[in-house]
Design a binder for these strands. Sequence first.
DNA 1: ATCTCATATTCCTTGGCGGTTATATAACCA
DNA 2: TGGTTATATAACCGCCAAGGAATATGAGAT
Lengths: 114, 114
Amino acid sequence: MWYIINMITTFDAVADPTRRQILDLLRVRPHTVNELVELLEISQPGVSKQLKVLREVGLVQVRQEAQKHWYELRPEPLAEVFNWVVNYRSLIEERYERLDELLKTMQEEEQNND
Amino acid sequence: MWYIINMITTFDAVADPTRRQILDLLRVRPHTVNELVELLEISQPGVSKQLKVLREVGLVQVRQEAQKHWYELRPEPLAEVFNWVVNYRSLIEERYERLDELLKTMQEEEQNND
DNA sequence: ATCTCATATTCCTTGGCGGTTATATAACCA
DNA sequence: TGGTTATATAACCGCCAAGGAATATGAGAT
């Protein structure tokens, strides 16, 4: 008998602001847990827990060096998010372009009113 | 006295698979609630609830036509997600490129072994 | 007015999440 | 060995989300 329980996805992982913050920090360079604890504003167990989540979805990996655990980014799973949202890219930009045009039109009309 | 309560973000909105499914459907064309109910596998109140969430973050808008409510996509808020994940784009692709190179190297070595 | 169709809202249950404190583990040091 | 540093795990709490069933609202149709 199999129970499929609650597999967390990459989308879930990046939905949490703390975890995004961690990823943004690891994008710069690997950090130890304590370094992250000092940079974030949650307790050490809190950080360890979020790191565990990130590990489970494969977004980070650990390199142990004596007592220190260096966490580093594994960006690959973000491809899923990127590939999803990129489908909307043209729509997003299209609207911006239309907005640009609207603003231009308004400016021109304003000038014509002088 | 101010209570800042639980503002849902665009990231939260797209973290839910049902809501992503709705967005993907609305990307094709506007849909009524009942159309979505038939395409998704949750109850009508369930759909209405997710649409409310999407409305709150500005990802959809409604156009009412008699009893029918046409929901259509408002992609703008996705820019936030896109702009975040795009920072990782080079990292993702870099890795893929390295993988490509590795595969090429392996193939070449294999040929050399003939 | 009443009936029906389309949608929203309310109330409820279940379950998990993000955070905490306390404790365990593990590696190094003296 | 005992002590210290670094991290993980356990137990717990408060909160809210996702979904369903029942009900309300609202807009035609007759």
